[in-house]
Simulated assay, not measured.
Amino acid sequence: MDKILYSSTQDQGISLIEADYHKFAFDRHYHLDFHIGLMTSGQQKFSHQGTQHNVGYGDIIIMPPDELHDGSSILDSGYQVRVFSIEPNWFTDNLEFTQPSDMLSFKQLIISDPHLFAPLAQLHKKLMQPNLSQLALDCMPYEGLGGLVERYGTLKQKAAIPLGKQSLATLKEYLLAHLDQPVRLEQLATLCSLSPTQFQRHFKARMNMTPYAWLTRLRIEQGMKLVKSGLTGTEVAMQVGFYDQAHFTKAFKHCYGVSPSAIN
């Protein structure tokens, strides 16, 4: 049986996942945050940018924001993983970037480094403990993740993904501001100075998914953030543009394997 636990931390930029996946498989999707996964048992397969990868115990998977991937177990016995979900702004706020346009990236998608894996796994466990002092909670994420960034991180200039005369970032900002409203294809095409047909073709070529599927995932990802903030399922459903709580809950569970009420 799949067992999935989503937990918030006192640092709003970091949340945690501890999961034992057997039957649950991730469709192609993306995240708004960095996902840093620690394989603690079993074997997983996933595709990323057209390449298939297999990972097992001791591997660290770095999945950047906005990059499509899927995931499922290789073995009938499943796989176990601990995941840090970290907002990109957390790195910006805690690292000394030299230019406002700098962004963090990682040199490798999959890292096999026992000297790094062990302290990261320990950090994940400690952050799930309820009685840590405030100073420890303030210091430990920086100390624990600092080694990962120091060894495998790099800074690069933010690269805009063009969509007509706009960019994906501009489109995302527009949609995030209008998630509670009906969105028409013509609106998005006009924003990018393209015809509806051109917009669909350009979007699919850039993102490898349809605008509708991408928007649905954006609504679910933003819905997760709002659920973590303490809003009720009904409030979240209205804010991210679902017809009602039932439709939101069904889509949420399909994406994450748990209902919104299971998020701590």
Rank of each mutant, 00 (worst) to 15 (best):
D2P: 13
D2N: 05
I4H: 07
L5G: 09
Q10I: 08
D11R: 11
D11G: 07
Q12K: 15
I14R: 10
I17F: 04
A19T: 06
H22T: 15
K23E: 12
R28M: 15
R28F: 15
Y30K: 06
L32G: 11
D33G: 02
G37P: 04
G42Q: 02
Q43N: 05
Q44G: 05
G50R: 10
T51K: 15
G58Y: 01
D59R: 02
M63A: 13
M63Q: 15
P64W: 02
D66V: 08
E67N: 08
G78H: 10
V81G: 07
V83S: 05
F91Q: 11
T92K: 11
L95N: 12
K107Y: 09
I110N: 13
H124K: 04
Q129L: 12
L137A: 04
D138H: 13
M140S: 07
G144E: 01
L148P: 11
V149R: 01
E150C: 05
E150F: 04
G153N: 02
G153E: 00
Q157S: 09
Q157H: 04
K158R: 05
I161V: 14
P162M: 02
T170P: 03
L171T: 04
Y174T: 02
Y174D: 06
L175D: 08
A189E: 03
A189N: 03
S193N: 11
S195P: 04
Q198S: 09
Q200F: 02
R201G: 00
R206C: 12
M207S: 03
M207A: 08
M209H: 07
A213E: 06
A213N: 12
W214N: 08
R217C: 13
R217V: 11
L226E: 09
K228H: 07
T232C: 10
T232K: 14
G233D: 03
T234Y: 00
A246K: 11
K250V: 13
F252H: 07
S261H: 05
